[in-house]
């Protein structure tokens, strides 16, 4: 189905709220009458079912990856009428790029309007490949330096990975050292990574859309004070100045005990605390995400 939109929720670090954002986004989309499928693709520790308030399903994505079942056989229903999910696997296995390509291609053929991949932490190639095929990439950052650092590495890795794939026949130098060189030789205000790439490899991008049709979007989660609200815009500015890469800041979500409470009782937060400030912030952010492109024009009346 050509109109299927694929979302990926990633982060450089674990435990920052990927599954929470993925499940809440799924609930929001399904409430807007979009047939939505959530796929738990966290290969290190799947927990999307918990965030959805469902027991773990017996059939999981491993059955698809090891050719024991088709993807459509794995789809589980949830308590929301338009929302479905596919259970993640606890078997890390040896996943290849081709597995991801098969998974994404098969997912696109399923009769859903929106498909959300909940990725695991870090930037292994399987995740980068999933992100590359996604129409929307959401990165979750929390205001702690280790998490910010790991997300910068994820952005860099995705950027280099995408450049490499786009130019597999033109660029034959490893890109990582090019980036490290640039880090050393960087001149504030006059050079960016884009220029450096050009002089090192002869290839560069003229417009952002040549690399990412839609910008990487940053969500700042577990915000504990108003000062943390500056983090998103700061990351956006730093990415522009350092990489010459335009990223989008989608919004901040306050740290909320309600989330932990709802995890404990295994219930979706939007369901259990629909009137909490966090639920309000999330709805506002989801609305912004869904109206930020032409793709969703039909949704606008519903929102």
């Amino acid at each position: 189905m050509a109109s299927t939109r694929i979302w990926s929720i990633g982060s450089g670090k674990g435990g920052v709220g990927k599954s929470f954002v993925a499940s809440s986004l799924g609930v929001s989309l399904s409430r807007m009458n979009q047939r939505t499928l959530l796929i738990d693709f966290d290969l290190s520790g799947p927990n999307l079912h918990t965030a959805l308030g469902e027991p773990p399903a017996r059939k999981n994505i491993d059955h698809f990856l090891s050719d024991q079942a088709s993807l459509s056989e794995l789809i589980q229903t949830t308590q929301f009428s338009n929302l479905f999910f596919i259970q993640g696997t606890t078997n890390p296995g040896d996943r290849k790029i081709s597995d991801v390509q098969r998974l994404v291609a098969e997912a696109r053929r399923l009769p859903f309007n929106e498909i959300i991949f909940d990725l695991g932490p870090g930037s292994q190639e399987t995740y980068l490949e999933t992100l590359r095929h996604s129409d929307e990439k959401l990165f979750i950052v929390t205001p702690e330096p280790p998490c910010i650092e790991k997300n910068y590495r994820l952005i860099e890795n995705l950027l280099l990975y995408t450049i490499k794939v786009l130019n597999f026949d033109k660029i034959n130098v490893p890109l990582k050292p090019v980036l490290e060189q640039y880090r050393e030789a960087h001149l504030p205000g006059t050079t960016t990574f884009r220029d450096h790439l050009k002089s090192a490899t002869g290839w560069t991008w003229d417009q952002e859309t040549e690399i990412f049709p839609n910008p990487i979007r940053i969500i700042v989660n577990q915000v504990r004070g108003d000062k943390d609200l500056d983090l998103g815009p700061s990351i956006r500015l730093v990415c522009k100045h350092f990489f010459s890469l335009k990223i989008d800041y989608s919004g901040s979500l306050y740290f909320d005990n309600a989330v932990w409470q709802s995890f404990r009782t295994v219930e979706p937060m939007l369901m259990k605390y629909p009137f909490s400030p966090l639920a309000g912030q999330f709805q506002a952010m989801a609305r912004k995400l869904l109206t930020s492109d032409l793709h969703s024009q039909s949704l606008r009346a519903v929102v």
């Binding site: 205001p143 910010i148 504030p188 205000g189 500056d230 983090l231 700061s234 500015l237």
Partner: peptide, 29 residues
Amino acid sequence: SRARITYSGGNPALYTIFTQKEAREYLRL
């Protein structure tokens, strides 16, 4: 005011991307 906050000392958003010296240079710009 956003840009000034970004490049003012100790902003975690600079972490591992810009050195203190580079941040000061950006602040000047």
